[in-house]
Amino acid sequence: MASQDYPERFLTYLEVEKASSPLTVENYRKDLRSCGEFLSKRLGKNFLWQQVGVLDIRAYLAELNAQKYARRTIARRVSSLRSFYKYLVRENVLEVSPLARIHSPKLEKKLPSFLDEEEVTELLDLPEATALGSRDKALLELLYATGCRVSELVGITLERIDLGNRFVILLGKGNKERLVPLGNACCLGVEHYLPVRSALMNKYGVAEHGYLLVNSRGGVLTDRSVRRILDKYISQLALRKHVSPHTIRHSFATHLLEHGADLRAVQELLGHANLSTTQIYTHITTERIAAVYKKNHPRA
């Protein structure tokens, strides 16, 4: 395999063997392309990835710093290169990765934004009693009831949701399945939406594709459409904060912990591989408790 083929082989490995999402694969592609363009100028157009040394990587990172790239962006580029070279070591192209002695920039722990319970209630009450309004209601209820990622939401199929027993099977990162219970409000929202789904598919002659959420013409709903739908309702709420589908996920976890849920249970519900990823939500709840104390205690 030629050196020029290594990045594409790596991206195929991510897609096929690691079951990475298209967005993740595209981010790796952009990061490798950025580094490749720098190395082409530094080492020559026909440079070999396996001959890149630690000094070349450090020069690339110095260039990113000189161009005032954010620490988080640089850390992601380092992570992408680390994974790429780990793959080359795994394929016996190299014995040691040039990233072995490279440290990622230290990042400040950024607490995720979330909606309070009143804001979530207002959001869930916004969809109107129309065909697409019922679809949007089901979509929003599912986001908040399960804390799922957008890719998991649009990937829900009819066979993976059981309204009678009130649970859904989500297909997460690395094709890992997890069973998440559904609340009564969510089940009612989905029940009201299902006849609309059938009507839309029949109206536009769409063959049964098995996916729960459909667009206005009965086709499969995309990640981008989910974000556009959420943006529409957030603009109606006029909140002074940036809200994304992931904000709903953060709200789901925060509210569970505030009501006494066990951290490991929340980890399972979110599909986090490591408990440390879930622990960031304990910082949020601790900060809120401190704020409530400071505001309400007479001698705070």
Rank of each mutant, 00 (worst) to 15 (best):
D136W: 06
A131G: 05
V78P: 07
A199E: 09
V154L: 13
V206A: 02
A199K: 07
M201A: 05
E159Y: 03
L212A: 14
E122I: 03
Y144I: 09
P98F: 08
V190F: 09
K109M: 15
L139R: 02
L140Q: 01
G155Y: 07
N92D: 13
S97Y: 09
L99F: 01
A129Q: 12
Y211R: 14
L126I: 15
E159N: 09
L139S: 10
R76L: 03
N175K: 10
N202T: 11
L182K: 11
V214L: 00
R178G: 14
E118Y: 14
T121Q: 15
Y144S: 01
S198E: 08
E108V: 07
K109D: 15
L200Y: 01
L158Q: 02
L132K: 04
S104L: 12
R217Y: 02
T130H: 04
P127K: 06
S97A: 12
V154C: 05
L140H: 03
S198Q: 14
S216V: 01
G155P: 08
E152W: 09
R90G: 03
S104K: 06
S134G: 12
R149L: 13
E208I: 07
L111T: 13
C186Q: 11
C187R: 12
L123H: 06
V93H: 11
R90C: 00
D116P: 00
E95F: 09
V214E: 06
G164Y: 08
C148M: 08
P112F: 11
D116C: 13
F114G: 04
E108M: 07
L132Y: 06
S104T: 08
P105A: 06
L126P: 04
N215H: 01
S80A: 00
D116Q: 00
G155T: 00
Y87W: 14
T146A: 13
A129E: 01
L182T: 04
E118W: 04
A145V: 06
D125H: 15
M201Y: 11
K110F: 13
V190M: 11
S216D: 05
E122A: 15
G172N: 00
E118S: 15
E177L: 00
S104C: 11
V196T: 11
L142D: 03
P181W: 02
L182G: 00
C187P: 04
R197L: 02
I169Q: 04
G155E: 13
E117D: 15
E108P: 05
L126Y: 11
R82I: 04
P195W: 14
D162E: 10
G205R: 14
F114P: 10
E117C: 03
L212N: 03
H209I: 00
K137C: 12
V220C: 09
G205L: 04
G164Q: 14
R101H: 15
P127Y: 08
C148T: 08
L158A: 03
I102G: 05
N175H: 10
P98K: 13
P127H: 13
R82T: 10
G172L: 06
R149E: 14
R178H: 14
C148W: 10
A185F: 14
N184K: 15
D136T: 08
V78T: 12
E159D: 09
Y193I: 11
A100N: 15
V120W: 09
V220R: 01
C186H: 07
N202I: 04
F167Y: 04
T146D: 02
R101N: 15
V78A: 08
G218W: 00
C187H: 07
K137N: 07
I74G: 13
A75W: 05
L126H: 13
L111C: 05
K86Y: 12
L158G: 10
L88N: 11
C186W: 02
